[in-house]
Design a protein around this nucleic acid. Sequence first.
RNA 1: GCUGCUGUAGCUCAGGGGUAGAGCGCACCCUUGGUAAGGGUGAGGUCGAGAGUUCAAUUCUCUCCAGCAGCACCA
Length: 670
Amino acid sequence: MSELLKISLPDGSVREVERGATPADVAAAIGPGLAKAAMAAKVDGEVRDIMRPFDGDAELALITSRDEAEALELVRHDYAHVLAEAVQALWPGTQITFGPSTEDGFYYDVMAPEGREPFGMDDLPAIEEKMREIIKADKPLRREVWAREKLIEKWQAEGEAFKAEWAAELPENEELTVYWSGDDWLDMCRGPHLASTGKLDPQAFKLMRVAGAYWRGDQKNAQLTRIYGTGWLNKKQLNAHLHRLEEAGKRDHRKLGQEMDLFHLQPEAQGSVFWHPKGYMIWRELEAYMRRRIDEAGYQEVKTPQLMDARQWQQSGHWGKYRENMFVVPDEIPSTDDDAPIVSNDADMMALKPMNCPAHVLIFKQGIKSYRDLPVLMAEMGCCHRNEPHGALHGLLRVRQMTQDDGHIFVREDQLVDEVRRFCELTDRVYKDFGFESYAIKLALRPEQRFGSDEDWDKAEDELRNAVAEAGMATEDYGWEELPGEGAFYAPKLEWHLTDAIGRTWQVGTIQSDRVLPERLDASYVGEDGEKHRPVMLHRAVIGTYERFIGILIEHYAGKLPLWLAPVQAVVATIVSDADDYAETVAAQLRDAGIRVETDLRNEKINYKVREHSLAKVPHLLVVGKREAEEGTIALRRLGSDEHQKVMPLDEAIAMLRDEALAPDQRPQS
RNA sequence: GCUGCUGUAGCUCAGGGGUAGAGCGCACCCUUGGUAAGGGUGAGGUCGAGAGUUCAAUUCUCUCCAGCAGCACCA
């Protein structure tokens, strides 16, 4: 057997190296520049330490900072380890658990020593300082394979209960590795890592915040302190990231909602929105648009009760599986006697609806349905209440009173896939109308807590999978992914996700195929054979809820809503008070043409008015002075336009604005 | 719900054991100005709520409430 190994490089060349050689040796043989730049190695497609010897002949690609995705992943993982080492150096007795890289940085979950409070923001500067020390010490990171028993023993001896538990539970066939940092600290880790801590840039990371996180993501377990950081290849990248965060903060719908006077929230109605006139105008336009879209798609709109008796919710199954999230109301006249309880202990219960589905089944059940009547497409702008945990509430994106663009499609088995596919097309059309060029579709599979047989779930999951495939959307372009355990208790879900200003994704659209509820509420139709059959019920929403969707729209457009959605579409601003009468005329004519217009006749300079309305994100500013009043023109200034103004006859301006203010579905097809 | 941070004028924020400040906004006055802040005067605050320590608390301590970030949960 030859002692020389054949290492093929990306350029096709092959180098021979001694057994025991490492990718670092190859890099050094190629040139000192590469030796310095090489961070890790891709050996037969697997990213490995640059100091780890080859196992045999291999294909090798060296990873440098030019392979940005891989390089970032490596440094972030290393920052996480340095973070853990720093925390233990500062506070001996701290337990360490788990610390991966993330989208833009890293975190490490730790448990403060017994008797010490969880780490807080005040501790971060000291940790950062210690991390810099460790980086500057340029400690070699050395990989070793350990026997499981030895590893568990070590963790137990050091009081690392979490690590010990984890080491014991790693799969039998997995090789357990540790990484030494210098000679005095080690962590159990699969790797890979850089050759030494000194490869990190001490100025390219920043600890961002601390938060609680449950051990293994389970609320029943101990809560650890998660220390988050952002980490980059160099300081320039770090600063660019911090700048991006700042910019994203400016798009926050809560901030814009206040600045633009769209809505507010207050403690007396936690999680429920006070829509101001301007914010509600967006809602009205959105609702009108959705009505046109669902009319066109063949839905019939209904309206169903807010309050229903607990018995109804018991029958639908919500009482058993969803009660924690429901607002329950006693069905009793409240006592006005100061000495008596407001309601008796055994009052009958009602509940505000958390979903519209049971009520829609009740409508479906009125009268007898023939197989010819199916599919029945029922829609409701359904206002629902869900008793969400306080910590979950988030502006418009997570509320307790929400209005869904809900709908239920009752189908025969043979119609199911086709209807799901049609729905995929509807969502695509709607999202594109709002300029969402990319979104993600995910399939949430059966959860642990569920109704129905495994066969039904197999079938339901397959149907959704197939429908998306038929629509051509089960691809990477659509972020296609399956999420085990994430489905609703009654059905698997297809989910459509959009992204907010700082990159968090939110579910908006969904469709779920459900055989449970029609069964529980005994919905049926008469088939061709004259027998009773169960319809399948598709629960679906396109924009999800008006609250969330408007929140996402505000962030998506950074407040600069397209003309058709803008609450104030135009402002007529005067330069001199002599033009006041003319400005009123202009505004009146625009109003007659259906444009939402305001006048600004204040005793202020035009500069001031331009600035103010620009900041208020009014799409069009119509400036009128003496000249325009005499000539019957206006000077139009568009928000965000480079050209300053365009003087045009009033008629022309009105016709133009009227055309531009049409919703996407009302525009002539080009 | 859990962990951490925060709560001072309509908004953004400074301050600090002895009853409170700025800028913007608002009101009034002067100014009629041609495309991103003209000038002046003035009004406006139980310093999130409650309790404790103190001669004295907006400031220190505790409890609660709310907001923010994350976790868990979810549209």
